[in-house]
Every structure is written in structure tokens, then in C-alpha cells.
Simulated scan of single mutants.
Amino acid sequence: MFSGLFWNGEQAVKMGLADEFGNLDYVAREVVKAEEVIDYTPRENVAERLAKRFGAALGEGAVKAARGGLSMR
């Protein structure tokens, strides 16, 4: 039955719930002996980063305008 409890890595190793510390790359290379590891982590391109910054700047300007911080003349 699920208890809702969780442990950090050090506690899990001490309790026998995990063998040792590691990450996905370690397991792929050392345990599975994969010759090549491909990282499929999604990454933002330059256009996406710029769009987010531009959007944040627009949002900040809108908040300032709503608070009366910018005069609309």
C-alpha cells in the first residue's frame, strides 16, 4: 500500500531501497554499457528565448501601465 513517504538518495541507499548514487548517463554507460547516449532533452532555440523575453517585457509594461506607472500620452 502506498504510504506517501519518500526518501532522499542517501536515505534510500542506507535503507536498501537503492544500490548507489548515479544518474541516467551513469546507468546508460556503466550498467547498460551503451556505446552512444543521446540526450533528448528539449532545448529552446534562440527565437523561443527572445520571444519569451519580449513577452515578459510586454507583460511588465502592461502591469506598470495598469498601476499608473506609465503615462499614456
Rank of each mutant, 00 (worst) to 15 (best):
M1Q: 09
M1E: 09
M1I: 08
F2M: 06
F2N: 08
F2R: 13
F2E: 10
F2G: 02
S3W: 02
G4Y: 00
G4R: 00
L5I: 11
F6T: 14
F6N: 12
W7F: 14
W7E: 09
W7V: 13
N8Q: 05
N8F: 06
N8G: 08
N8I: 02
G9H: 07
E10N: 06
E10C: 02
E10Y: 09
Q11W: 04
Q11D: 13
Q11K: 12
Q11C: 05
A12N: 00
A12F: 00
K14A: 15
M15W: 09
M15P: 00
M15N: 08
G16D: 02
G16Q: 05
G16L: 03
L17A: 07
L17Y: 14
D19V: 04
D19M: 05
E20L: 07
E20R: 15
F21T: 03
F21G: 02
G22S: 08
G22I: 02
G22A: 07
N23Y: 04
L24T: 09
D25H: 09
Y26A: 04
V27H: 11
A28D: 01
A28N: 06
R29M: 10
R29V: 10
R29L: 11
R29F: 07
E30T: 05
E30L: 06
E30A: 04
V31H: 06
V31W: 04
V31L: 09
K33G: 02
K33N: 10
K33Y: 08
A34D: 04
A34T: 09
E35Y: 07
E36V: 13
E36D: 09
V37E: 04
V37N: 03
V37C: 06
I38C: 03
I38R: 15
I38Q: 09
I38M: 08
D39A: 01
Y40F: 14
Y40A: 07
T41C: 03
T41G: 01
T41W: 01
R43C: 04
E44K: 14
E44C: 08
N45E: 11
V46C: 05
A47L: 15
E48M: 14
E48L: 12
E48S: 09
E48T: 12
R49T: 10
R49S: 08
L50P: 01
L50F: 14
L50I: 15
L50V: 15
K52C: 02
K52S: 07
R53T: 12
R53D: 11
F54Q: 13
F54V: 15
F54C: 05
F54R: 15
G55A: 15
G55L: 11
G55Q: 14
A56F: 12
L58K: 14
G59F: 13
A62M: 14
A62L: 15
A62S: 12
V63S: 07
V63Q: 08
K64Y: 11
K64T: 05
K64Q: 14
A65N: 02
A65Y: 02
A66V: 14
A66N: 03
A66T: 05
R67N: 10
R67Y: 08
G68A: 01
G68D: 01
G69M: 01
G69Q: 01
G69E: 09
L70S: 01
L70P: 00
S71D: 13
S71F: 09
S71C: 03
S71G: 04
R73H: 05
R73V: 05
R73K: 11
